[in-house]
Design a binder for these strands. Structure first.
Lengths: 101, 101
DNA sequence: CGGTATCCGCATTGATACTG
DNA sequence: CAGTATCAATGCGGATACCG
């Protein structure tokens, strides 16, 4: 018996997803750039979470070039944009929480 | 290197936490009632997440009685109330997401 | 460059039985 | 009634090497 917040949870669950969406909401990014932003993360996990976000249609991937080196760009979708105000509020709340400590 | 959204994430991470807060925001609940609402969950996990929420001062626990049967009530704290509007928006977003499918 | 493949540790979750 | 204790399972996250 799933409530809507379980649905939300399913989609956003994952260590990097929220932050990926925030970054992509600012600008389109190539994979190599994303990887640098999440220097601590393993590629396996990063790719996995990018794929899941893509599957949920929150982000879009565009590949240029037919043979290596490839060039792939990740961008936020119109649908993905609808979740960003919410993510920003999480950000703000997190800031306030820090001040309280 | 933690951003505020990582902080938020740390606090709300956990399968039942968001929903617990939403329930407690409506009314104070005894443990046995909470357990019924999360019929599928194991007690160990439920207790653990309640404790973590208590540790972060998002909820408060009050125990009545010195010998069994005890009576414990969980209620949301003033601080916990500040996060609920955000949780409700997650709920709404989840609803919309469902309609799209 | 942008991934996969493989292997692994560990935290989270879970089922069940027991207790103050 | 409101938990704890114990043990098992599973899946997330991570390190490293390799490939189209």
């Amino acid at each position: 018996m799933y409530t809507p917040i379980d649905i939300f949870w399913q989609i956003i669950k994952g260590k990097y997803k929220a932050k990926i969406l925030i970054y992509l909401n600012e600008r389109t990014l190539r994979y190599s750039i994303i990887r640098k932003k999440f220097a601590g993360a393993s590629e396996r996990i990063l790719i996995k979470q990018l794929k899941e976000l893509e599957k949920e249609r929150l982000i879009e991937k565009k590949i240029t070039g037919t043979k290596p080196p490839f060039k792939t760009e990740y961008k936020i979708s119109n649908y993905g944009k609808t979740i960003c105000p919410l993510l920003k509020q999480m950000w703000f709340w997190g800031e306030k929480h820090l001040q309280q400590k």
